[in-house]
């Protein structure tokens, strides 16, 4: 048991050493804000509907340090995001990927809204039958005053 622990420490140390040159290449270690900026665009792969930057679980803390490590290795944001998609599926993205079947996510709402517009236009036409000519001589001011104000002032006039 002790040997196993010592061995794992050794591996960790080696890993740290292996990472070192990459750290040295970059101008400075990545900041928390740089890590969060990428984590914000990803969703926690285990707890649904929680962005990775605010997820409080231990697993997410590890994923954030993974992002930090990848940043330190000089990976771009795109590469990091791609890594997460490859390993955990498209659900880590904050939107469905724009490909294949998932295009439906983006196409259905505008089409449905267009149908709605068409229905409203149709209904509007149907409701706008040629009726008796609207009185046009009313002054603008009067047309603006709605019936409540008209009624109110009329009543008051009568009272006086």
């Amino acid at each position: 048991m002790m040997r196993l622990m010592r061995l794992s420490w050794l591996i960790l140390l080696l890993a740290a050493l292996a990472v070192r040159p990459a750290w040295a290449q970059g101008p400075r270690p990545p900041t928390d804000d740089e890590v969060n900026a990428i984590a914000r665009k990803l969703y926690c792969p285990v707890c649904e509907n929680t962005p990775l930057d605010v997820c409080p679980t231990q697993a997410c803390a590890q994923w954030r340090s993974l992002i930090r490590q990848m940043l330190a290795e000089g990976k771009t944001e795109q590469e990091i995001v791609q890594y997460f998609v490859d390993n955990y599926g498209a659900r880590v993205l904050n939107e469905p990927p724009r490909q294949g079947f998932h295009w439906l996510a983006y196409l259905v709402p505008p089409l449905a809204i267009l149908v709605g517009v068409a229905i409203v236009v149709q209904a509007f036409r149907a409701m706008k039958r040629p009726g008796p000519a609207a009185p046009t001589a009313r002054s603008d001011q009067e047309a603006l005053l709605d019936e409540y104000l008209l009624r109110l002032e009329e009543e008051l006039r009568r009272q006086r």
């Binding site: 969703y43 509907n49 599926g89 659900r91 993205l93 904050n94 469905p96 990927p97 079947f101």
Partner: peptide, 11 residues
């Protein structure tokens, strides 16, 4: 598709 996706705030 058998694949879960997230629809998040940007959408």
């Amino acid at each position: 598709t058998g694949q879960k996706v997230t629809v998040g705030p940007p959408f």
